[in-house]
């Protein structure tokens, strides 16, 4: 779909890289630790029905790295500023991985401008006795392989040439991810105490073969957010919105249609 924009906006003094396309109710996509390098195929699909807004968080991609950025709490309040600044209402938030954690942190603070929540392979909580992957010990190549169930996708991604700027951005994204999620590793121990404050229709989406946050995390999220439904895709890794594009967009559409009733 043509017509998406790729631009910069300044929110509360911080310059953000922002992609946006389509018309309809707003969908805010919050990316994970690897950043938001492109207008992705699932965004194209959603843009047929929605106004898809995909910023790069402060500290990621070509966005500023502001001095005030120390924690996920900082990032959550920043996004409340963003929702006001862009005057968005009735927003369908999709958060992936670190972005899923962020979505929950935003929603427990204020859901006033939100309509639904979709958590995809979301970080943010700790599930006892379930071993997570440790991307900080993996080489970049191992990380790519572990993101996908279908190793042909990993091979294809690894075969792509990387520009010098993309290599710099990969390091920047890794630095900011570490700053936000090093310890406690990819979660906030206080978050689960306040998840009852989320009273939005919530969809939890997981890959059955997720090697970073195993599906037990998806089940835990379903139990922690009242009324949440869980959809697990078989033969799928940490990126259901990439690896199971058709199934993901169908599940999201069904969820939104159901939530509207």
């Amino acid at each position: 779909m043509a017509g998406q924009t790729h631009d910069f906006v300044t929110i509360s003094g911080t310059r953000l890289e922002l992609r946006r396309g389509g018309e309809g109710p707003p969908v805010l996509f919050l990316h994970g630790g690897a950043g938001n390098a492109d207008w992705m195929p699932f965004m194209n699909r959603l843009a047929q029905r929605f106004d898809v807004i995909a910023p790069s968080h402060p500290g990621f991609d070509r966005s500023d790295t502001p001095d005030w950025l120390d924690s996920m709490s900082d990032l959550a309040y920043f996004y409340l500023d963003l929702l006001e600044a862009l005057d968005l209402d009735g927003v369908h938030v999709i958060g992936h991985s670190l972005g899923g954690w962020l979505a929950a942190e935003i929603a427990v603070r204020s859901s006033a401008r939100l309509a639904t929540l979709t958590l995809v392979g979301a970080a943010g909580i700790h599930v006892p006795d379930v071993k997570k992957g440790d991307p900080f010990l993996w080489t970049p190549e191992t990380l790519v392989r572990k993101l996908f169930f279908d190793q042909k996708r990993a091979e294809a991604l690894l075969a792509q040439a990387t520009s010098a700027e993309a290599a710099d951005i990969a390091i920047k994204n890794r630095f900011t991810t570490a700053k936000l999620a090093w310890h406690p590793r990819f979660y906030n121990p206080d978050l689960r105490k306040w998840l009852h404050r989320i009273r939005l229709p919530t969809l939890v989406v997981w890959g059955a073969e997720d090697q970073i946050f195993p599906p037990a995390y998806g089940e835990a999220w379903r139990g922690l957010v009242a009324g949440a439904t869980l959809t697990v895709f078989p033969a799928c890794g940490h990126l259901p919105h990439v690896e199971k594009l058709d199934e993901f967009t169908a599940a999201f559409a069904a969820f939104i249609n159901g939530a509207a009733q």
Binding site: F136, L137, T139, I171, K172, F175, K179, W182
Partner: peptide
């Protein structure tokens, strides 16, 4: 030890890391 063990993100400046 592998590079990722010795150089966790943020341990050095980005230019040194690169």
């Amino acid at each position: 030890s592998p590079l990722e063990y010795r150089l966790p993100p943020g341990y050095t400046s980005m230019s040194s890391m690169k």
